[in-house]
């Protein structure tokens, strides 16, 4: 008991002095627990996040876009791999984490429970959703837990490409035919608010934030990150003539912030609880990929054990 108190204050000192916590270091159980929750949610988000855009790979309108989108969705699978590995350093297995995703006990980012209705969604997702993810992940790249920080650093490099490609699609459509212009505006109208919700509830409604910030897992609060995202995004929208669907959007000269209207938190909680437009469908897709793939994984395992048996003989 005494040791725990001493360990804990030593732990906090290390964090406060900016040291990274590594897998073999002592850490409070609750720190481990919170990190597993966060990292696995992040990993699941990458995996479920492959679905809404993945369904446009086969319909991408040019060879260049088809390749870029395929490469992007492939990157997201890679991000999932980095993150599951980071979570495994905390003593959990990828299989167990995936089981939690599939039985509904683990969460993933709600943004992926919205449908992609037109090709413009692919551009807008790259611009807004990957853009918001970058803001979040840039902060997480400075996280106090070493493996998680390093995973985010790698992820951010690739996310920047995704955002660039997405914005390029948006800019192309915004300068395109009448139909293309209305298609891209419609996509922004649908994705804008859900993108702001990606940063999570307001700081006073976010039970985990204070603790995660004290531990240096997070470095900035939800509201702070959201404001930063809005501030960098509005000038980009203006540059290509896209209207942000928020009549209350105002520039505050004094703070230098773009102030925005109220977020519909009822919608936010509705989607988190599983009642978003695509929750059921996304889970069904993941479960059937998992179930359909079972015989393949069994074959790989049987083959691998056959190799070991042969080597032992």
């Amino acid at each position: 008991m005494h040791d725990d108190v001493a360990n804990e204050s030593r732990f906090q000192e290390r964090i406060d002095s900016g040291e990274k916590i590594e897998p073999r270091d002592w850490m409070p159980e609750r720190f481990r627990h919170q990190l597993i929750r966060m990292i696995s949610q992040h990993a699941h988000s990458e995996i479920v996040g492959m679905l809404p855009e993945g369904n446009w790979i086969t319909r991408a309108p040019s060879l260049r876009r088809k390749m870029a989108l395929l490469a992007k969705v492939q990157d997201e699978a890679g991000h999932g791999l980095y993150l599951y590995s980071a979570a495994e350093t905390l003593g959990v297995s990828r299989e167990d984490l995936i089981d939690q995703l599939l039985d509904g006990s683990a969460k993933y980012s709600s943004i992926f429970n919205y449908p992609t209705l037109t090709w413009a969604d692919v551009g807008v997702i790259g611009w807004l959703v990957d853009g918001a993810a970058i803001v979040n992940q840039t902060m997480l790249a400075k996280s106090s837990y070493g493996p998680y920080a390093r995973a985010n650093l790698r992820i951010c490099k690739e996310e920047n490409f995704h955002k660039k490609q997405g914005f390029e699609i948006v800019a192309t459509l915004a300068a395109g035919t009448t139909e293309q212009r209305s298609m891209v505006q419609d996509a922004v109208d649908r994705w804008w608010w859900p993108s702001l919700m990606m940063f999570g509830p307001h700081d006073n409604d976010s039970p985990n934030t204070a603790e995660l910030m004290r531990w240096g897992v997070k470095r900035r609060s939800n509201d702070d990150l959201r404001q930063h995202f809005v501030n960098i995004t509005i000038p980009q929208a203006k540059a290509v003539g896209i209207t942000i669907p928020d009549p209350e959007l105002r520039y505050n000269e004094e703070s230098g912030d773009w102030e925005f209207g109220a977020i519909d938190w009822d919608e936010f909680y509705r989607v988190i609880k599983g009642n978003g437009p695509c929750n059921a469908e996304r889970m069904k897709a993941r479960r059937s990929a998992h179930d359909d793939g079972r015989w393949v994984r069994e074959a790989a395992a049987a083959y691998a054990s056959r190799d070991t048996v042969a080597a032992e003989e």
């Binding site: 995996i47 679905l51 088809k66 395929l70 969705v73 492939q74 897709a285 393949v296 790989a300």
Partner: peptide, 25 residues
């Protein structure tokens, strides 16, 4: 590319997408 997001293991999502990219390239 139709496999992307639906492969039996995550490593194959990456590998099949990789091969698809080579072919389309």
């Amino acid at each position: 590319s139709e496999w992307c997001g639906h492969a039996p293991i995550l490593e194959e999502d990456v590998a099949l997408a990789n091969i698809a990219l080579d072919c389309i390239g």
